[in-house]
Design a protein around this nucleic acid. Structure first.
Lengths: 194, 194
DNA sequence: GTCTATACGCGGATAGAC
DNA sequence: GTCTATCCGCGTATAGAC
């Protein structure tokens, strides 16, 4: 996880990998115990540094929350970028669904509950970049939108995929079955051929 | 909201309405700021009593969390009870969907984010009564289950309804349009006639 | 960049008067 | 049942040495 620093020349070392490790620990702990239930001490302990070292990278806990949320958003953005590179809209949509399902499954064991935390929900609700990413996502999923009610199907589909993977009753379903089911039902919801 | 106490005889007064008010405040505040971000002081202030008065009703914060979660669960159980009273399974399912949509819309402005809080999610994941209610719900929605993967569609549908109402992009959609869209899409997901 | 040490308030929780 | 008063630990945040 940490880049080796054995090169003889100190050229362009990754800028502050500590910051990334803090964010990683925050994502994990926020998802486990909630934002409000996670202290800076826990984050510091998790990566083996002191609180003060954390404060050297972020000037407040709020800053860490924002950084963690934006890191999570960045993953979704990357998924969108990749899907939009497809040659046709139909293929882009197909690709997008597959990538969203993969992302949800990847998050299942670790950061799955993060996006449900009331603190994160409220942050995103007023975060312009998030709203823009969601708009792009919805447009790509559903086609050019009509009224505001055209957002409902996309909102449902995204919530369905993200929520289903976390459900206790399917907690012990293996990854591949889960992925297959999610894909099948997502396509059915969108009236796509399987 | 509070029952009038003007009857001449003090017969069977509601047992400890204070407890109910505490739970109500907790539900509201937990959804707003998260479980970890809500203090007993906030809860006490919210209903105009002192912390000590709260401690007289619940011996710890954990107790309040459990009571709040179970209150939320009870609403879902009531919905299930009502739906199961329908004469046929098809009618019961139809009724259940309508009631779940109504419940989600009712929660939209207040307790909507509560069930996403990592603390609540983890509590429910190991709470037998919750798992049993979810099993009943899934059976009623999807018919008698086969393997564990048969839970996926129900998990998706429930997550879709509960999650979509909270989505920022549909936040200003009026209640009736929202309800109509959710119902239409839920039925489509289940291959029911609209 | 990371450490030790510390300030200061608020958190949960309890005791005991009324 | 509700209050005031209080305990104690942990929370965020900062200062300053290395």
């Amino acid at each position: 996880m940490v880049a080796s620093a054995q090169d003889s020349e100190p050229v362009f070392v990754q800028p502050s990998p500590v910051k990334a490790r803090i964010i990683g620990a925050a994502l994990e702990l926020f998802a486990e115990r909630g934002v409000g239930g996670t202290s800076l001490q826990m984050i510091a302990d998790h990566i083996g540094v002191t609180k003060a070292a954390v404060y050297h990278q972020f000037k407040s806990k709020d800053d860490i929350v924002v950084a963690a949320a934006e890191a999570e958003l960045a993953r979704l953005e990357a998924v969108l970028d990749a899907a939009e590179a497809a040659p046709t809209r139909a293929l882009a949509r197909e690709d997008l669904i597959r990538r969203i399902v993969d992302l949800a499954i990847e998050r299942r064991k670790s950061e799955g509950t993060l996006v449900g935390d009331p603190v994160i929900v409220r942050f995103f609700a007023e975060h312009e970049p998030y709203l823009q990413v969601m708009s792009r996502l919805h447009r790509l999923l559903m086609g050019d939108t009509g009224g505001p009610e055209s957002h409902v199907p996309a909102a449902m589909l995204v919530a369905a995929i993200g929520g289903a993977v976390m459900h206790p009753l399917v907690a012990d379903l293996d990854e591949n079955t889960m992925r297959a089911q999610l894909l099948r039902l997502a396509r059915r919801f969108l009236d796509l051929p399987d």
